[in-house]
Amino acid sequence: MIAYLVTILTLVSIAAIVALALNLQWGLCGMVNFGIVGFVALGAYTTALLALAGTGPILALAGAVAVCALAGGLVALLSVRLSEEYLAIVTLGFGEIVRVVSLNEAWLTGGALGLPGIPRPLIESVPSESYDWVFLGLCLLALAAVFLLLESLTRSPFGRLVRAVRDDDVVAATLGKNVLRTRVVAFAVGSGVTAVAGGLQAFHFSYIDPSQFTPIVSAYAFMAVIAGGRGSNRGILLGACTVMVLLEGSRFLKDFVEVLDAEQLASIRLILIGLGLILFLIYRPQGFGREPRRSAGSLLGEAAADGRERTS
């Protein structure tokens, strides 16, 4: 039971990192990333390949972050001049490409069989009974680091700028080019953060295959962000926990209702997520948490003031 709890907590913290990344992209900047699972997968595969090639875990993770940030920046660049709908389509396509490549390029990714034997960090220096605890600690550490990073980003002039832009088309139009760059950077940062989650997942299972990266990963992230309240990092943490615990808890359903097999359970979960998304959008668009609503003007005023302080 304790072991199970440790596993769940590990998975929750990985999912929470994905949700925090999506919160930066969708919640703060209004950039919908339907291909977030693709970025998780890209991060996981890059980490795995680097780790298998013998770089240390830190270096592998750093490489994955760089690759994903670059990919995210390029994806955002494709559509940043157009209206936001296009980014949703482009990201969906990106996710699909990652899936197809991971499935078909067996020489690189192991195809459907995946990549086994990914060396886990600190595995030699920690007694195996307590390894899961140590790894959970690492995940929580990563989560805390990501949280602090995004929280300070949110409060920085940069964060205020993107929020002002999200809330007000006119402001967005008048600020022009600066805003485009800001959005591309924000999307790239989000993608880099996603890579951390992917890397941790690869280390956690010590093998990866394409079946780990289904749309349900994106669905969890969207659900966590909308439930936690778009824009609020703290709310997202809570949202990710509740969503994961509820949905993982539904595993136990299987023990009670024998007619359900794993497949049906998975579809019931996705139906619930779909309904949850819709209901939240209609009835609680702010989620359970709540970003203090402020006018674009006041946000921009502060952003400008910060800028002046900096230069003076």
């Binding site: 919908v32 936001e84 709908e85 969207f222 579809s267 139906i271 779909g274 998304l277 959008l281 209609i282």
Partner: peptide
């Protein structure tokens, strides 16, 4: 943006009702 996220929700529901 809200509508397209909602349509993704509808997509999850429809597809998985079929799978179920």
């Amino acid at each position: 943006i809200t509508l397209l996220v909602a349509s993704m929700g509808v997509s999850f529901v429809l597809e998985n009702l079929c799978r179920l």
